[in-house]
Amino acid sequence: MRDNRWVLFALVFALGVALVSPLASPNPDGLNRVAEDYNFQQSEIPSWTRQLPFYSLFEGYALRSVSDPALAKSVAGFLGTLVVLGGTWGLGVYLRARNRKP
């Protein structure tokens, strides 16, 4: 019997990390900070990704329908983690199927 409990454990851990994401430091990150310090932040334009339908659902890492900012980020992180899991899992299954074709 294969021991596959690690998959569940790792997934719960990843989802837990996503749920605590509101505790992350709000400071500007490396590139953001350099852009601020050396005045090239004004080169940034509103992201083209705002034209996508997902922008009506998520504003950055925040689910729009939730008013509490910490909860909105937690839920967005949780959902994003599941989408990434689904995407890579699906891709893996696809590659497995192609590998097994004669």
Partner: peptide, 18 residues
């Protein structure tokens, strides 16, 4: 399949933790 799935899920979540 499972390892790629959970690794990517973890990296996505961890990238949110500044």
């Amino acid at each position: 399949v499972p390892l790629m799935g959970v690794s990517a899920a973890f990296i996505f979540a961890a990238q949110m933790i500044n």
